[in-house]
Design a protein around this nucleic acid. Structure first.
Lengths: 200, 200
DNA sequence: TATATTTGCTAACACCGTTAATTAAAATTG
DNA sequence: CAATTTTAATTAACGGTGTTAGCAAATATA
């Protein structure tokens, strides 16, 4: 009897339709404002049916997180095998990473827990500009004291800032508590490389 | 008559007590679970009084965001003036930045919109490990092909990953839409510096 | 003292995630 | 086919969120 099979198939279709409706929500209003109730409304079923297919809202977001990492892994793998030279591999992967992030912004923000309420907030904060101006002046002095003074200030500042923020936030994602003092070496490695290329 | 002054003073005290209670909440359970109702409960007033001092919840978080950037600016400025050599300034500022982030984790996460629901999510995602393994193998090959093969694999991988994530997320915070293609130069600058120091 | 103003309150609105209890539908059994 | 069990979907609720309208009490001004 194919009844069991049909039921399984229908269940799978139902699950897919939930994800589809959810993803539409995410694309429209961002993953912050995804709600079970809106999904239920979109698929024209009552709220509790969703809990027959997903344990909770988090499980739905987890599904997208997995999908996002799979997609990212795929594009990285794809560009990686297109180059033989390891250095070019790393460069190509970096470009692919960048493209993925902005071509699938919602995926990326979900994968790395980027809330971006700070986005609205941060840009109207004079205190932030003040902080960055201190960084910028540091870069400026370093360029002035270096051998190639043609280095672009804002480019270098952005690089410096990004390295710092990236190191910190990756560290925060990976572990909960304070990172082992040993991990500071990652910081020092990255920063010393940056400084070397800036002044030498 | 000092009545107006006293009122202003009291109003200021009230405002401060709201922020104090709110910050206690943030320290206890993270800024995600800060709620107006819990603040009202803590200061033993009814809910709407809070709206006499802050337009909405976002305004309270904005206050902390400002405070955080001010604090960060202060520590950066402090360590900056302790060094004459610009390179050492940049290095010291990087260390201070790192320390600030982990010594004031709640501030940092608020300032940069780090939701960290992904934190729980991400670590149980096999797909992420798969993606990172592709990155790691790229680094591995680059080290193998380089002149100093003693370079530490995981250190370099973390550096590479952090640079990429930092560049992307700073870019996402600063602007809403897709970044101008010109901004990709920041990526290329940072990555080429990293690769150079890795293989040369 | 009477009026005007400010201050704080209760109660509600409109959402949210989640779940218990119940009815309607479907499949299985006799 | 009829009775029974199993499954599916629903309604209604619980406890939570941010926010606001309307009202009473306390305070300041005239």
């Amino acid at each position: 009897m194919g009844i069991a099979e049909r039921k399984l198939r229908q269940k799978e279709e139902f699950r897919a339709s939930i994800l589809e409706a959810a993803w539409l929500q995410v694309l429209t209003d961002g993953w912050q404002s995804l709600s079970i109730r809106k999904i239920a409304d979109a698929i024209e079923y009552s709220i509790p049916v969703i809990y027959n297919h997903f344990e909770n809202k988090e499980a739905i977001l987890l599904e997208f997180t997995k999908e996002g990492f799979q997609k990212l892994a795929d594009v990285l793998q794809l560009v990686k095998v297109q180059h033989k030279d390891p250095a070019m591999q790393l460069e190509a992967m970096a470009n692919a990473y960048w493209d993925f992030a902005f071509d699938h912004k919602e995926f990326y923000q979900l994968m790395f827990g980027l809330g971006i309420p700070a986005c609205d907030r941060v840009n109207q904060v004079a205190e932030m500009k003040h902080m960055t101006s201190i960084m910028i002046s540091g870069i400026e002095e370093a360029i002035a004291a270096s051998t190639h003074k043609e280095a672009e200030l804002y480019l270098k500042y952005h690089t410096y800032f990004s390295i710092l923020h990236g190191l910190v936030s990756i560290q925060m994602i990976e572990k909960d508590g304070k990172p082992a003092e040993e991990n500071r070496r990652i910081l020092q490695d990255a920063v010393s490389g940056f400084i070397k290329s800036l002044i030498a």
